[in-house]
Design a protein around this nucleic acid. Structure first.
Lengths: 214, 214, 214, 214
DNA sequence: GATGAATGAGTCTTCATTCAT
DNA sequence: CATGAATGAAGACTCATTCAT
């Protein structure tokens, strides 16, 4: 790394380049907002509260984000992506090799349901703004597409290896994804008792297994 | 009794006793609010706008409802009940007598999906406030329970007549109801193209049919 | 009473002349307002509440009074007059004949203080509006004048009978009246304990006795 | 330290660090509110009017006070304290050393009465809200206690120096304080003519002197 | 006279965003 | 870049009073 910008302090100086500090402030804001949204909801959280939690001034918030909504969008993206990651990992065909298909389906659904335990307050905001804010919806849909694609790919893989027979993998992926998503949301965000939860996981597994088998 | 006092209006005339006038104003308010909520959303609708649309003054709004939220609650109740009525009617075991079970399931799902075309704007508000406003949630859940009960009853009837074999009708009802509800919401409120819609109806029908058959 | 108005119903008819009914409604309104003002305060009482308590419609209130304030004025007048009556009775020179002057003064002050127990809520409204509403003040002052005149007359009587020596009976009357009035108000409306009350009555008696004696 | 950084304003210049600006705005608000309350009364003054007078926006009002009432409370405290200061100063036993006791009492009463000329509009509000708003009452009573204590202390001092003989200094203090307070309020806030005023001061002085002497 | 539905001006308060320092 | 004081549009709700029936 030969030529560095002149503004950078000479090597050895107390390393706190603006960039790093900046990134840290930004991160503090995102974390502060995440906590506040999670605990109080989006509308109920003021920008002043976010600034206070992040330990910066209100003005600074607007140095990093154009407006309050932009912070939410970023958090939504991050959150949904994390959820998606967990699920997509579970959908890796490699994991579906040997084991019993029904058991795999069940494990998957279980994972999806459990995923709802990640930042439930934020997920409530998600439903709240999904149809209200086109960008929230776009963000969510962009990532959902990934999940659906992973399901479709898995179904095609199962088709190819003769372990399943699904006529229209894309539509099946959509139906499965949506059904599991909302059933999970209702059960997890609604605080359903464990018994009801287990029964629902069983039935959903059965339903989906039957759809994709034979 | 041919001749009545002149002060009494002739039968059929615009009878406007206090009660009727009152009822009409109230109705005007509900309709005005429904339209405004539908078009602009809940938060975006001001009480002044509702009054203006109803052709009355702001004060009148508060003569009939304690606050803005109460109007929403009433409309939510009414709307959800109408939706539920349509679906519950479709679930009457009598209708499932002769016809092919798969065809019946498909018709049902079609109905549920079409139901989403009733006041889509209001349904968006429904999702928006479901986790936010406990009373909205209670209202919706109260009526959902009815739908689930109807499904469960139908499943039990089908079990009894040997046309289906469902181990846990209650859970199955919940899973079916929730899956269809949200898939329908996503497709109808999201403005999906007809082709995608038809494919989804097909797949959902298949999925549910398989769940309840044998 | 020879000629009566033709509008009066013939003797013997079911006597409920409008006048009487009217007077009764008016009275009901005054009583309703008195109760409401007493319990909730003036600003906190709505005309609707008064109407409700009186068992009539809001509109009727305005058939008997030009506005809400007029009702208060009437009640204030009535209340203050009642209070004044009690005190003026106590000031009748005849009552001061034989007895010990100090004892009489003490009895008088006791009476004045006790008078504050009559509709304390209304008396709070009195202080609240005394400097705010010129008509309330005028009403109160008109009656206070009576009280002061009675005190002055008593002092002159005592002067004349050689039992007291007061240089300026009018001013003395004013000072005595005002001092006792407010001290009483503070103690009674403020909920002072009995001990403090008794001590205050003692000291006030002493103070006034000394003023008027020699 | 002669040469300071250029960015620092020269000594004596319009120093406007954040704190000072803030303090100035706050002060402007208090003054604006004082004027408005004084001229128009509490209920009749809107928050918008206060902001307008202070030359700031409505929002700023709420940046410094939680609500309108808090402004009143602050002003009440300040005003009552100023009044109390004047009177308590007059009650300093040192001032009562040599002079004629009667003259001292008269001077005191004169001071108390004159005190009522300080923001009469605000004092009207004081009476208006004394029984209505517990915090106003608490504020006033807290400071009144101080006045009563000063009177009691003076009486005890006079007792000790043999210049007075007061059996129960605390009660006497209460009675004197309350009597003078309200008589003064009635005369000063009511706009009594000078002659009546002088006569009242004379009589009150006489009354109180006699109470505390012998 | 009675009714009570309707009126609508008027208030306080909130909060995302801006900008002078 | 940070600060936090200032902004001001916006909105829900109240209630004395009126007036058509």
């Amino acid at each position: 790394m030969p030529s560095q910008p002149a503004s950078k302090p000479p090597r050895g100086a107390t390393r706190t380049p603006q960039q790093a500090r900046s990134r840290r402030t930004r991160q503090a804001l995102v974390e502060a907002a995440t906590g506040a949204f999670e605990e109080r909801g989006y509308d109920e959280t003021t920008t002043a509260e976010i600034a206070r939690r992040a330990g910066v001034s209100v003005g600074s918030v607007y140095g990093y984000f154009p407006d309050k909504r932009a912070i939410l969008l970023e958090i939504v993206h991050e959150t949904v992506e994390q959820m998606s990651d967990r699920i997509v990992a579970e959908l890796d065909p490699a994991r579906w090799q040997g084991a019993d298909l029904r058991a795999s389906v069940r494990a998957l659904i279980d994972t999806v349901f459990k995923t709802r335990l990640l930042r439930p307050g934020l997920q409530r905001i998600l439903w709240e703004r999904f149809f209200k804010d086109p960008e929230v919806r776009a963000t969510v849909e962009a990532i959902e597409t990934r999940g659906r694609a992973a399901i479709a790919a898995l179904l095609e893989h199962l088709n190819a290896t003769g372990r399943a027979r699904v006529a229209d993998p894309d539509t099946a992926a959509f139906v499965i994804h949506t059904s599991v998503e909302w059933t999970g949301a209702r059960l997890m965000l609604g605080g359903a008792p464990d018994a009801q939860l287990d029964a629902a996981v069983d039935t959903m597994s059965e339903m989906i297994s039957r759809l994709i088998l034979d």
